[in-house]
């Protein structure tokens, strides 16, 4: 008896301690878990349910009774044939394909200019970061004003052209598309710049000097030392912008409302408009769900590959 008690004594105390710690750990993470459950898990289950019905808030029945309007997978087959959805999706990808590379190259170029010290560097750096801190919706209002036909953009063009220019930027589909892209690039190039500069400053200076002393030109150094050492950071910067750009809504919606027609309608604007104007929420739930599933799959693959790349 005594032996047994002695034997288990110390381990029990240790056990108690780790169990206490574990219990505290669970308590500490509980609020976060509940919030995630509250906005991710439960709503998505609800979304699955509604997406299989024709429910709308105007039907006068609660969402929990939506099964009365059960339509099987009609929403999903409608979605396949919904040209406006597919064109919004395509446009979102197109915006991404234009904005992200342009922002990346501009950010990289700026980072190169800022990587070593010069008088005024800190001040100019702070000034360059201002656009990304402006509330995106406010940026939308700003660019809405800039691109008015009597606005400053036309004023500058008039100055160079020599005669009054009165382009109705936001009324023409192509020009409106151009304008919203400009606003996105204006706002988010600083983000690329910020991250890429942080990465570039982290490249050890001795390595660059060593390469120079071995006869490497600036371009060779950039290709063989700077870029390889920044690989992870570049991937992170691009990933962040791709993710954020896919969600783009605020400045686009405020500048053009997705128009003229559907010329600047991204996937977020599309979902919003269908929710607000057409009020067929069962269908919107299906659209949103398809997007969520597609994104989950893509991001899961990307995260897996990225974490493998980072650990290397």
């Amino acid at each position: 008896m005594t032996m047994a008690a002695l034997d288990t004594n110390t381990p029990v105390m240790e056990h108690e301690d780790t169990r206490d710690s574990r219990r505290l750990g669970i308590w500490l993470t509980l609020p976060a878990q509940i919030l995630v459950l509250f906005i991710a898990v439960f709503p998505i289950l609800m979304q699955v349910y509604i997406s299989l019905t024709d429910w709308s808030p105007l039907d006068g029945i609660g969402w929990w009774q939506a099964h009365e309007l059960w339509n099987s997978f009609a929403n999903y087959s409608d979605l396949m044939a919904d040209d406006r959805f597919w064109s919004a999706l395509g446009r979102t990808v197109l915006v991404m394909a234009i904005c992200v590379p342009v922002e990346f190259l501009l950010g990289l170029g700026l980072a190169i200019l800022f990587v070593d010290d010069f008088p005024g560097r800190r001040f100019l750096y702070s000034v360059l970061l201002i656009p990304m801190m402006v509330v995106p919706a406010v940026a939308g209002y700003m660019f809405f004003m800039l691109f008015q036909s009597g606005g400053p953009v036309n004023d500058i063009l008039s100055f160079f052209y020599g005669a009054p220019v009165t382009i109705a930027w936001l009324a023409d589909p192509d020009l409106a598309f151009f304008a919203v892209i400009v606003s996105d690039i204006w706002q988010w190039t600083p983000l690329m710049f910020l991250i890429l500069l942080a990465g570039m400053v982290g490249v050890p200076e001795d390595q660059l000097r060593a390469a120079t002393l071995l006869g490497a030109s600036w371009a060779t150094r950039f290709r063989t030392i700077v870029l390889p050492r920044m690989k992870t950071i570049i991937i992170i910067a691009l990933a962040i912008r791709v993710i954020e750009n896919f969600k783009v809504f605020d400045n686009f919606y405020i500048m053009t409302g997705g128009g003229p027609g559907v010329a600047t309608e991204t996937i977020s604007i599309y979902i919003y408009k269908v929710t607000q104007q057409e009020l067929i929420w069962g269908y919107v739930a299906a659209v949103a769900l398809v997007i969520l599933i597609a994104l989950s799959v893509v991001s899961a693959i990307a995260i897996k590959r990225m974490s493998r790349g980072v650990s290397q």
């Binding site: 710690s21 574990r22 505290l24 750990g25 669970i26 500490l28 993470t29 976060a32 878990q33 995630v36 906005i39 991710a40 439960f42 709503p43 998505i44 609800m46 979304q47 509604i50 993710i243 896919f246 969600k247 809504f249 996937i267 977020s268 979902i271 919003y272 929710t275 929420w281 919107v284 739930a285 659209v287 949103a288 769900l289 997007i291 969520l292 994104l295 989950s296 991001s299 899961a300 995260i303």
Partner: peptide, 25 residues
Amino acid sequence: FGSGGNLPLALIQLRIFPPMAVMIP
């Protein structure tokens, strides 16, 4: 304490989702 090991990934996913797509429910 290593609790809530599911959170990092869940929170990244949450961040990736466009708010518009989660907001209906």
